[in-house]
């Protein structure tokens, strides 16, 4: 079985069904179904917010590089790696699915 990887051209959106909260600036969430607790941290929390209505890696990194002191290329690479983790955990889905 091949694991899905993030596609740079795809639009991704939050998977529904998670209890989400802010804790000392970190975004934390819990899945009753899978019995898992997630801490996305501050930057991850901001990425999560940008996935509410669907977004691409490029779209997210463009917003983040305007808000944070980071180069767009570096930001895009790290956002892609992070979103790959979210996808594997089932926290986000492609709008094409």
């Amino acid at each position: 079985m091949t694991m899905k990887a993030i596609d740079q051209n795809d639009v991704y959106i939050q998977q529904k069904g998670y209890v989400v909260s802010d804790m000392n600036g970190d975004k934390v969430m819990m899945s009753i179904e899978s019995g898992k607790y997630y801490n996305l941290g501050q930057t991850g929390g901001r990425i999560w917010e940008l996935l509410v209505e669907g977004n691409t890696i490029f779209g997210i990194s463009t917003v983040l590089s305007s808000e944070y002191s980071v180069e767009q290329a570096t930001c895009q690479l790290q956002v892609e790696q992070f979103m790959n983790t979210l996808l594997k955990e089932g926290l986000i889905v492609s709008k094409r699915d």
């Binding site: 019995g35 898992k36 801490n39 996305l40 941290g41 991850g44 983040l64 980071v70 930001c75 992070f82």
Partner: peptide, 19 residues
């Protein structure tokens, strides 16, 4: 107008099994 940018932290996901 200069908007001060926040410090960048590499995003990471911490996972804990509730069970």
């Amino acid at each position: 107008m200069n908007i001060e940018k926040k410090e960048w932290q590499t995003p990471s996901l911490e996972v804990l099994e509730i069970s």
